[in-house]
Amino acid sequence: MRLIFTAGLFALMILLMTGCKPNSVDRINTGASITSISRLPENPLEMIPMAVSLQPQRKTMSTLYGNGIAAKRLKDDADYAAGSVLYLVTWKGKADPDWFGARIPDRVMAIESVYFDQNGQKSYTFFKGPAWNSGLDLKKEERLSIILSIPVAKSP
């Protein structure tokens, strides 16, 4: 009895231990990627990430991107110089399916851009994302000052 049991047990264990999972395909967060948003002149995701922020009440998360001129601020903390381009991309957040304890970007809610022309004049543009929440009212002046004062994420 014991013999059969032990032998069976051993076989069972080997079976369970070598049990295989199907190899899954590539995993890309396509929903959060910017593929087509009308009028958007360039893809902010191609620029240099400068800052990250969370808006806990709205459950959104944002990343501030900049062109090379704007990204100088990462090093010297200086004001944004003429020619700087900034984009603030805001996503709805979602729970990370692979790690309890993390939230990751879901779909794009809004994209905002700030251009500094050669004289340092600022222009603000708003682009609606697929996950736009129509209850929100973004006031241009207020948004401009919020975006320009986002503390950049410094690293040594």
């Binding site: 959060a32 240099i48 990430p49 990250v52 969370l54 991107y65 304890g101 993390a102 990751i104």
Partner: peptide, 22 residues
Amino acid sequence: YRNWKAISTTERFDNGTIRIIF
């Protein structure tokens, strides 16, 4: 790495951090 592109960001509420993955 700060010149690389951000391929994702995460909020980690388990340890109170915020992250960029380049």
